[in-house]
Write a protein that binds this DNA or RNA. Structure first.
Length: 271
DNA sequence: AACCTTCGCAACCGCAAGGAT
DNA sequence: CATCCTTGCGGTTGCGAAGGT
């Protein structure tokens, strides 16, 4: 199975990889390590573009890749992480180190998405399609009507509420780093919003959201040990995503605890 | 047996972010 | 500061296999 082989205008080979090409790539990387994909093909004696080599290595040749059928447990994991992270396949793949993002994405698109839809669950919101979907947005007027938390009713969506998630994440990052006062954080973030997006009503909602976020953030005591962090707590709605960050799926937000101040960690969640 | 449709998956493409110059 | 280059990501496509009629 695969694509037919052809050559582009620069004489670079496209389409299916041969066993000989795979061998050359593996031998070269084993000898010289990763990096400099642009010049790698020439040095490895391959008539491919660097991008193609990189993809082949990451999705197929790299050691430790698990191939073949997904187990029910893996499928459950994908659904769980998709509910939290949306279509961020690379982020999901980081939680499942033996599977590639491409593999996960393919399995989701060809199988899991349809399966959820058949069950009456919206694959994007992970909510029952028969009930009204509640998606938090900075434009929403009410912030007090979060649904009863349950692992399958998350409204963490990467599409319908991208703006609000980005806003809240940046705010959380700003608070977390304590580099700026709240007002300056807000000013910076609002400057990034499209002009028409910041009307008076939205400002009020943002202010309300800000207070809500701060109060939520304060629930995390910096003196807490990792084990004491809220985890799948039906009262708070927090889900401990890893040792240092919490997701509040009902507010499309991520909170990073204060004792971990490397903001790059938060990048995983930025939409 | 022939044809059509769906599935599964490897690979491509365009875009964006970040670093180097 | 601007431009170029590299790397990484997500959406989409192409195509053989499998299944259905």
């Amino acid at each position: 199975m695969g694509r037919t082989t052809w050559f582009d205008v620069d004489g670079l080979r496209k389409g299916e990889w041969t066993a000989e090409e795979d061998r050359k790539l593996v031998v070269y990387i084993n000898e010289h390590g990763l990096g400099e994909w642009g010049s790698l093909p020439k040095r490895a004696g391959l008539q491919r573009c660097g991008k193609s080599c990189r993809l082949r290595w990451l999705n197929y040749l790299r050691p430790g890749i698990k191939r073949g059928k997904f187990t029910p447990q893996e499928e459950e994991e994908i659904i769980k992480y998709h509910a939290l992270l949306g279509n961020r396949w690379a982020a999901i793949a980081k939680q499942m180190p033996n599977r590639t993002d491409n593999d996960i994405k393919n399995h989701w698109n060809s199988c899991l998405k349809k399966r959820l839809a058949k069950k009456g669950i919206d694959p994007m919101t992970h909510e029952a399609t028969t009930t009204t979907s509640l998606t938090v947005d900075v434009t929403s007027s009410s912030t007090t009507s979060s649904p009863t938390p349950s692992p399958t009713s998350s409204s963490f969506s990467s599409c319908s509420s991208t703006g609000s998630a980005r806003f809240l994440n940046k705010l959380a990052a700003g608070i977390s780093s304590r580099k700026h006062g709240l007002e300056s954080i807000k000013t910076v973030i609002l400057a990034e919003q499209p002009r028409e997006a910041v009307d008076e009503e939205k400002m009020m909602t943002i202010n309300m959201k800000e207070k809500e976020l701060i109060s939520c953030y304060m629930e995390i005591d910096e003196t807490m040990s990792i084990d004491e962090l809220p985890c799948d707590d039906s009262t708070s709605g927090f889900v401990a995503f890893d040792d240092y960050s919490l997701i509040d799926p009902y507010r499309d937000s991520v909170y990073v605890s204060d004792f971990y101040d490397e903001t790059e960690h938060l990048d995983l969640f930025l939409l």
